[in-house]
């Protein structure tokens, strides 16, 4: 069922091999959007969804799009993430939801040979991901750091200014969007959390207290201003891409 939908991605992947890297990134962007949407439909909490995206990105860090079908890897990532984060999902639910994504408005798949084959593929691919990642599938996500940073920052700034600007919501949304690209697995969780908070604070022009240290140095002491800039610009590129490829 994926073949029809992803032939476009495949040809793009082939293009990518010839020259442009961006086609590959676009494919990953689309597949991650698929993971996140599927996660919502399956009622997954944000940690399992984040883990699923991280698994997907880690897998394709070393594997090639020409060899592995990205949507199958995505389905198995969702399945595996459910096990890792203790929100168990049934393969059948995952397959049905994905089927509806690829063929909107159609009936669920018949329980015939094709269905069982697909299920076996999802289960086999799970093992493939485990092997490729060498069983290192428990990740530390930036969300908890963001939560702690938010509490600290709230105490640093003017109460009224804080109430006017939806900093927490914005930072949280930015963080979720990080998972569309491989930045989510390329930077330490503390740095990601700080960068999205920094971006949110900048966007609303929130005035931060100044002193000997920058405010963010008080939260995380092993990051430089340059690194924050880098993560932010990568994140902004992702938003730029959304317009181009969705």
């Amino acid at each position: 069922m994926e073949v029809a939908r992803t032939s476009q991605d495949r040809s793009q992947a082939a293009d990518a091999a010839k020259g442009g890297v961006s086609q590959e990134i676009k494919t990953h962007f689309r597949v991650c959007r698929f993971i996140i949407e599927t996660g919502v439909k399956l009622g997954m909490r944000s940690m399992p969804v984040s883990t699923a995206c991280a698994l997907y990105h880690k897998f394709f860090k070393t594997a090639s799009l020409e060899v592995y079908e990205p949507y199958l890897v995505a389905m198995s990532s969702i399945y595996l993430a459910g096990k890792v984060e203790e929100q168990h999902l049934r393969t059948r639910d995952i397959i049905n939801v994905c089927h509806r994504f690829f063929r909107p408005g159609t009936e669920p798949m018949e329980l015939d040979g094709k269905f069982w084959e697909l299920r076996d593929s999802v289960v086999q691919c799970e093992l493939l991901i485990l092997r490729q990642l060498n069983f290192q599938v428990a990740f530390e996500h930036p969300h908890k750091y963001l939560l702690h940073y938010l509490v600290s920052v709230r105490n640093l700034v003017n109460r009224h200014a804080w109430a006017r600007a939806p900093i927490a919501e914005t930072a949280w949304a930015l963080l979720k969007d990080c998972y569309h690209g491989s930045i989510c697995v390329r930077h330490p969780p503390q740095h990601l959390a700080l960068a999205v908070l920094y971006l949110a604070v900048q966007s609303y022009g929130l005035e931060m207290p100044s002193g000997e240290l920058e405010w963010w140095q008080a939260l995380c002491d092993d990051i430089s201003g340059k690194e924050i800039e880098d993560i932010m610009s990568e994140l902004l590129k992702l938003y730029d891409m959304e317009a181009k490829c969705m």
Binding site: Y79, L80, K83, V84, E86, H88, T91, R119, V122, V123, E126, L127, L130, N134, F135, Q136, V137, A138
Partner: peptide, 21 residues
């Protein structure tokens, strides 16, 4: 045993991923 409907048991996945660290 991995030849089951559910794939790799989740306890095995957690045991390996935790013990690795």
């Amino acid at each position: 045993r991995t030849k089951t409907e559910e794939g790799v048991p989740f306890t095995a996945i957690r045991e390996a991923s935790l013990l690795k660290g």
